[in-house]
Write a protein that binds this DNA or RNA. Structure first.
Length: 484
RNA sequence: GCCGAGGUGACAGAGUGGCCAUGUGGCGGACUGCAGAUCCGCAAACGGGAGUUCAAUUCUCCCCCUCGGCCCCA
């Protein structure tokens, strides 16, 4: 089954065929670094993180580029407020961004170009656009002439005339046409600026992505991603610039992730209705945040509320329990079923889902089905040790793409000595860390007490262990325990 | 106004021309000394209207509603 993805350009799902066989050049629009990152940014980062991981899992050699917009009106304004340099502020924000995304287990892109470090390439591109007659200089600024483009609005399906009806030129601008946009902005006093053939100034917003794509990937990128809010005008303008400059198709597949809404409104910095990643991580583990976001469709808007995050936590708990249980059963299970058919069909379903425009939601559903059937086999006593291992392997493979299960949470069986008949006082349990042997000993004592129907003692042991962060569960073939 | 997406059971959210989504929650069971975990069963849906069809939640048309984009924004 071939990988199919939804292309915003054609509004259809298309079979994925990169320009060069086996290689994928992928560019994802990053953030403007003037403030903290919020859950909406996390959604984008995690959606594309999993997309990249799946492409790699499928054997593609992916070069993933994500930029930082560090030269920008808001960053300049914020830095001035704080009385620090623009790049000082943006460096700080970039560090925070990495801290946040690392916490969310987002794999790093291969390259993180910054606007401030791409100025020579940007200037070269602007020059070329002027030479080719697609741009013009005006009072130290350079604008792209939309009327010079062969076609306009193919991504967002906007008509230039329609747009112009509502547009107007801001006072102080020197555009020839209202829809023309700045490639290079003449410096204003107190702003960060670079020398250029048009005097001191700085790059416009859209041009940095075009320049970075060209520099780090080439004239044509296979996948260009970003939020749906960037479709117009940002991505539209990127197409105009890049195709006018390079004379080659700019992007083969446009992928856009849906916005995260809160109370029916887009979460955004300007609306001040956002949860910073910091805050979110106080409420939920990173794995839960990932699971919550991946349990939706990347391209659709997602409404956030605390209740749905809690639901995600509970649902994930089930998969985690199954994962832990299966790992424990990998040596203990006694049945005869090696669960091969089950594992194969579950994995097949996951692959089919992921190959269908990265259907993480259905992929997760496949894991639920696997968990249910495997748990049933186990509790019916039919699962073999090898079968448990097979199931754990599938979940582990799933996790290598989704990264939502904790690997060290294994529930452990007791390796108890039979001779543990002395019912020592649970109160004598040392606070601090117990060794595995000590835990086994206590569980053996408890087991002996249970057999003797001394439930008071058994409950006491369970309680004391719980106080030390050790959770135990009784099962048919003995208790298992887990460090919390 | 223009462009785009969408309306599915209590909630979240897939999908398909005729058969189970899935998860959380609810109800009833099994297991259990109790916890917990797990499993089984039940109830519960396809915005409204017309049409195509043997059959439509799934296709077509109309209507209603919601959301996003059109300054910045993942």
């Amino acid at each position: 089954m071939a990988l199919v993805l939804y292309n915003t350009l054609t509004r259809k799902k298309e079979p994925f065929e990169p320009l060069h066989k086996g290689k994928v050049g992928m560019y994802v629009c990053g953030v403007t670094v003037y403030d903290q990152s919020h859950l909406g940014h996390a959604k984008s980062a995690i959606n594309f993180d999993v997309i990249v991981r799946w492409l790699r899992f499928r054997g593609y050699d992916v070069k993933h580029v994500t930029n930082f917009t560090d030269v920008d009106d808001k960053a300049i304004a914020r830095a001035n407020e704080l009385g620090i340099g623009t790049l000082e502020l943006t460096e700080r924000m970039i560090a925070e961004y990495f801290r946040d995304m690392d916490a969310l287990k987002v794999r790093r892109a291969d390259v993180y170009p910054k606007a401030s470090e791409t100025v020579p390439e940007i200037i070269a591109m602007v020059k070329e656009l002027i030479d080719k007659g697609n741009a013009y200089e005006s009072n130290g600024s350079v604008y792209f002439s939309v009327r010079s483009a062969k076609e306009y609005g193919k991504l967002s399906r906007q008509s230039l005339d329609q747009l112009e009806a509502g547009a107007r030129i801001e006072p102080g601008e020197d555009k020839r046409d209202p829809m023309d946009f700045a490639l290079w902005k003449a410096a204003k006093p107190g702003e960060i600026a670079w020398d250029s053939p048009w005097g001191k100034g700085r790059p416009g917003w859209h041009i940095e992505c075009s320049a970075m794509c060209l520099k780090h990937i080439g004239k044509t990128v296979d996948i260009h991603g970003g939020g749906t809010d960037l479709i117009f005008p940002h991505h539209e303008n990127e197409i105009l610039q890049s195709e006018a400059c390079n004379g080659a198709p700019f992007v083969r597949y446009w992928m856009h992730n849906g916005m995260l809404n809160i109370d029916q409104e887009k979460m955004s910095k300007s609306l001040k209705n956002f949860f910073s990643i910091d805050e979110i991580l106080k409420k939920a583990r990173p794995e839960v945040v990932r699971f919550y976001l991946l349990n939706a469709t990347y391209g659709a808007p997602l409404d956030y509320d605390e209740k749905s995050m809690d639901e995600a936590a509970k649902a994930l708990e089930r998969l985690q329990n199954t994962y832990d249980t299966m790992k424990a059963a990998s040596s203990a299970a006694r049945g005869t079923d090696d669960a091969r058919t089950l594992c194969e069909s579950s994995w097949k379903k996951l692959e089919t889902s992921m190959d269908d425009d990265f259907g993480t939601r259905n992929a997760i559903a496949a894991m639920y089905d696997l968990a249910r059937d495997a748990n049933k086999l186990l509790s019916d006593g039919n699962l073999s040790a090898k079968g448990a291992r097979n199931v754990a392997d599938v979940l582990s493979r799933f996790n290598s793409v989704f990264d939502v299960l904790q690997e060290d949470g294994a529930r452990r069986t007791v390796t108890a000595s039979e001779a543990a008949v002395d019912l020592a006082d649970p109160e004598s349990m040392q606070s601090g860390r117990l060794t595995d042997e000590e835990i086994s000993l206590w569980l053996a004592r408890r087991e002996a007490a249970r057999k003797a129907k001394n439930f008071e003692y058994a409950d006491m042991v369970r309680k004391k262990l719980a106080e030390l962060g050790i959770e135990i569960q009784d099962a048919k073939d003995g208790a298992t325990w887990k460090q919390r």
